[in-house]
Design a protein around this nucleic acid. Structure first.
Lengths: 255, 255
DNA sequence: CCTTGTAAACTGGTCAACCCAATTGCCGGG
DNA sequence: CCCGGCAATTGGGTTGACCAGTTTACAAGG
């Protein structure tokens, strides 16, 4: 059973990935032409249809522009893994919002949660550990389940919807998807210890403690993303919360 | 010179567009399988590679999910069961969520807001007053604008999108809409004083003060709804309203 | 009768070779 | 030096075939 079905990404995705790397590394200047599809096919040892699929993927992400009969050209859009297309939400903004909102959800959940839900939460920690051990692919499932269970414990469907939306938003655009993928590839897995801390905090049924624990956990998530993506500070700088000292003080609330 | 050959969109784009239309028109339910690539190819009278390209486009935009050996399935995330809209969220849940989330947004906004935005906020107070005087219809516009301006001051698009979603959610279910209508009919208008308090609090640029003010404001909103719907609350005593009535006091005490 | 295997049918994944049309570039004639 | 035209190059799209997972139907076995 040591054998795991390693999910082989589709070929065009691998090719697209490599092409993006090449473009981001400046191997092809903006405005310059990429090698012909036939050449690329030879380079990557794949067929031309596969190359075409990859090119289309890059085209949809605004990395390149294809001119019929001429070639595919690197688009002007400021490259360097950063350029968030207007509409999509970057991982930092996303996680910052989660710090704010899930912190409050945890606080409310601490007040409302039932013993049964607490047991369920704890069992999810087990699942998470199991997933971390085995296939890397699934491990986010338990993580989501953990956070959603807390959300549901608030007994507020609006809260549940918002938090689920925030979670799913990471899959919303190819760009953010790639960023999270990068984080995963770097070996960052949801820390059991951190989640257990959150669990313990909620188990105290003290809102302030629960909020502080959740904020702490998500703040570390931001740190992970930062570390993994060595991303331009421009976007990260927007995250005031990440560097803020205005953390909720557990001690203050306890007194 | 005047004659320009209209650029014919690439074939895969045309196909992708048609497929999106079909999906959005509900021709294929979420979770259901689309016709096989070979069938689609026959349907659109194009080759299979072209269909594949179109499918990849939909996949990148999160419309569908491709399962090898099985088929391509319509994804849920995009619309339908996704957003807060048509989720049937009661007014109390909604406002409770706003207390939690907008409170935090206000706190963050207090730290981030620019002088220009502060001026804009203040001018919205003026609009609100004007709307209260004249037609009742419009006055919610200024109210929304007020809250959205604060959200935008956080410089976090995830926060903005969540708060806008929460606002629009009041139009989601018929029940919720009727309740808000009732509140308006009872003569409850967004209080300028309350909003000015929030404005002043944010102007101090102190997160804690801003959060408290926003929570206070929204807590009063819940009171208004409670008061305005008291009769209804008796009818539906065992459902939402009664439960929420006891609930919101919990949220209030969290801070 | 129900269960269980297993093989066939189906579906996406990929490849190879081919034709077409637009673009580019070279080359020779003016 | 300029310009027209032809040929090479490039993307756009097609056909047909084969492979590898999934699903399904059907028959053997309990």
């Amino acid at each position: 059973m040591a054998e795991q079905t390693i999910k082989v990404p589709r070929l065009y995705q691998q090719v697209a990935e490599k092409l993006i790397e090449m473009i981001e590394s400046g191997e092809y200047d903006v405005g310059s032409r990429l090698p012909a599809e036939r050449e690329l096919a030879a380079m990557f040892s794949v067929s031309r249809p596969t190359i075409r699929e990859a090119v289309i993927a890059l085209e949809l992400e605004n990395f390149v522009e294809v001119r019929t009969g001429s070639g595919v050209y690197v688009k002007a859009g400021r490259r360097e893994s950063g350029r968030l297309a207007d509409k999509d939400i970057g991982p930092f903004e996303l996680t910052e919002a989660r710090i704010l909102f899930e912190g409050e959800a945890a606080a409310l959940a601490a007040r409302m949660i039932t013993d049964a839900e607490l047991r369920q939460l704890e069992s999810i920690l087990g699942e998470m550990a199991a997933e971390n051990e085995s296939g890397e692919e699934m491990h986010e499932e338990a993580d989501k389940k953990f956070h959603m269970t807390i959300a549901q414990a608030t007994r507020n469907s609006a809260v549940v919807s918002v938090i689920e939306g925030l979670w799913d938003a990471r899959e919303s655009s190819p760009l953010t998807r790639r960023m999270y993928q990068r984080v995963r590839n770097k070996g960052f897995k949801p820390s059991i210890e951190e989640h257990r801390d959150v669990f313990n905090a909620i188990a105290t049924r003290d809102p302030a403690i629960a909020r502080a624990a959740m904020r702490e956990h998500l703040t570390r998530v931001i740190d992970s993303i930062l570390e993994a993506t060595e991303v331009e500070a421009i976007e990260a700088a927007r995250s005031e919360v990440a560097k803020s000292r205005e953390r909720y003080s557990v001690a203050r609330k306890l007194g």
